[in-house]
């Protein structure tokens, strides 16, 4: 049994089939890439898996348990963590609090313990703070703990999104264009970071990315989407050699242009 198994994922918006019969999977510790031209339905697929939109058809199994039809927060708590393509950090909270908030849903204390300053509340609050600090340290943001996220440069905001997703305790981590807007040295650093995190936590990673360097170095399997449909899948070498994929990205070679 695969850790994550997605079958026949389908979603239409009006008359447009955004995702059409897309099936794929990920094993524990595996990094899987999803690529495709703009508008191919990659982010929609992520939004379907995380429950932002209801599915038209299909099934999403995490460790054999069905996730389709559950609420967004339930899906996250079952072990699907994510980052966003257009960074969505919590502006009113500090860097540290952003990460703490993602661990807070697992805090068992109630209002009574809070209002009586009970031991359960104080202990858990210390734990969450320490855990959040540790996640920040993993991505190298510990010295910015008290800053507001909007004061961080773009590359660091992306890292904060990852730290926050780690705090949700994911079994599968969904990264939506995590390297967008990073400079070449940041991209290399990012590739190293994702590898380290995978080693440490042993989760599966699904990554949507346009930077081929990221996809080709990290992923053991790649799925190519085009107009919502699966165009090809395979190892990086297989995908590189696939003509259909190059065509979808760059267009067909026009016979009249060749010399």
């Amino acid at each position: 049994m695969s850790l994550l198994e997605v079958r026949n994922l389908t979603k239409s918006f009006g008359g447009v089939r955004a995702v059409d019969d897309f099936s794929f999977g990920a094993e524990q510790g595996e990094i899987v890439g999803i690529i495709g031209p703009n508008g191919a339905g990659k982010t929609t697929a992520f939004n379907l898996i995380t429950g932002v939109y209801p599915l038209d058809r299909g099934s999403i199994l995490l460790e054999g348990k069905e996730l389709a039809g559950k609420e967004q927060f339930e899906i996250t708590r079952s072990g699907i963590g994510r980052t966003f393509q257009n960074i969505r950090l919590f502006k009113g909270l500090s860097v540290l609090e952003n990460v703490m908030t993602a661990a807070d849903p697992y805090s068992p204390y109630g209002l009574f313990s809070l209002f009586t300053l009970g031991a359960a509340f104080r202990r858990r609050e210390r734990e969450v703070r320490a855990a959040a600090m540790e996640y920040l340290a993993l991505v190298g943001l510990e010295k910015y703990a008290d800053e507001k996220p909007s004061n961080l440069p773009y590359g660091l905001q992306r890292k904060l999104e990852i730290a926050r997703a780690l705090a949700t305790g994911p079994k599968v981590l969904l990264l939506d264009e995590p390297a967008a807007g990073l400079n070449p040295s940041e991209v290399r650093e990012f590739i190293g970071l994702v590898g380290e995190l995978r080693e440490r936590f042993g989760f599966a990673v699904l990554v949507i990315e346009h930077r081929m360097e990221v996809i080709m170095t990290l992923c053991s399997r790649i799925y190519v989407l085009n107009f919502g449909k699966l165009l090809a899948s395979g190892t990086p070498a297989e995908i590189r050699a696939n003509h259909e994929v190059t065509e979808a990205y760059i267009g067909k070679e026009d016979a009249s242009c060749s010399v």
Binding site: T50, Q72, F73, T76, F84, R88, K91, P105, Y106, T168
Partner: peptide, 12 residues
Amino acid sequence: SDELAAKSMGID
């Protein structure tokens, strides 16, 4: 600050 992101962090 962001209800969708909040839900995605497991907040009910």
